[in-house]
Design a protein around this nucleic acid. Sequence first.
DNA 1: ATTTATGCTTGACTTAAGTCAAGGCAAAGC
DNA 2: GCTTTGCCTTGACTTAAGTCAAGCATAAAT
Lengths: 228, 228
Amino acid sequence: MEITRKIATFSLFYGLPQDQYINLASIALQKTFKRRQIIFSEGDEGIGFYIILSGRVKIYKLSSEGKEQILHIMEAQEPFGEAAVFAGEHYPASAQAIIETKVLLFPRQAFVDLISKNPSLALNMLAFLSRRLRTLASLVENLSLKEVPGRLAAYLLYLSDRNDGATILELDISKIQLASLLGTIPETISRILNRMGKDKLIKGTPRHVHILDIQGLAGLAEGRKRLT
Amino acid sequence: MEITRKIATFSLFYGLPQDQYINLASIALQKTFKRRQIIFSEGDEGIGFYIILSGRVKIYKLSSEGKEQILHIMEAQEPFGEAAVFAGEHYPASAQAIIETKVLLFPRQAFVDLISKNPSLALNMLAFLSRRLRTLASLVENLSLKEVPGRLAAYLLYLSDRNDGATILELDISKIQLASLLGTIPETISRILNRMGKDKLIKGTPRHVHILDIQGLAGLAEGRKRLT
DNA sequence: ATTTATGCTTGACTTAAGTCAAGGCAAAGC
DNA sequence: GCTTTGCCTTGACTTAAGTCAAGCATAAAT
């Protein structure tokens, strides 16, 4: 069956025996969310967790005045909402589709039943959660780099790395979202991209960034160098 | 046996059947670290994970110039290093005993064997990891509160809350460590505690803080109020 | 096609908080 | 006891980055 095939490609389940894919497929529900549609809100009951088939989802928190801090931008193949589900708690953050997005929903109770019968599934997920914990820890690390240019440089290098070291990057999220992800505001992003251009570190076009000097960016990210 | 009894008190394992505590005890090794002794360093191979019996451990990362960002201060009963172990990877951060500390070490291979035979153990741990993920997410949220007074207020309220709403708090970590935890420097902490005192929000003595105005602190933490 | 949002950039201004430097205080060590 | 070491505070100065405001460009909506 088609869903079974897709499930086999998710790293959350990678390396499981075939029959388990079938079990998983049998409890999964397919859903579609439109651009900007809210998938769940902070505080909602954790009815299940999701894996993205296509599209893009942002995970964020709202401060009391409605200012948002983006925690992650999730893409195809990535799961979200699983923390609440295992802990049997409410969602700790909100999720919204950035563009039209198809997901699989794994309902809580059915999943808990499944996992308690299949230890290898559990081990897989433990490893995955641990890795997720790590990326969050690295976000903390980045946010604590005191200067924004360093954080931005780190992000650009991360993007480049994710595309096999490509030097021409497509900014796949808006600069407003980028600002939020780095804990700053769009104006600051603008100015810094500008300064990076003047220092010949990058060449910027509206929706793309062309990296000219990887060493220089790395220097910024590690706090060894600064912009003029 | 004594270790078995202690294991039963760890939330990581809370609610397991008795025989599993015995299994766990049989693979655990007891170790002692002196004040300031390094338990493991970022990049070391993940040989196993730890649970604190007594003492206090800080988990931190070092920037390229040796400046440290504290990620957690762990206390008795709390586990650390488990992320690396499940993922079968190296430790993503360093751990150092702040004071003399006794721990139990659960070696990686023995633990993996155990878990694959006991699904309920796995489910327990999944829930625990999820919760840990949540506290990290809330650290991110706090770090992104742009002003330090807000972060500090949030931390004081957190401490008060943890002690059943006590208004006299013992600062259990040094102000240098507190500064690092909040992503700032000790001087700033000093000045802000001072200003909080002038605004009658708290009364400060060297090692204690007496909360005078919870509402006021809450206002700060939520960004509704500011210090003079 | 025109109108309306949204996103992006720039400039002038303000401010929170970091750096540097110096001094006090208390605990740990000899 | 004295001395050293680490922790904490205060002051003067500097600076990164946030706020406010205005304008342009592009994309969405009617």
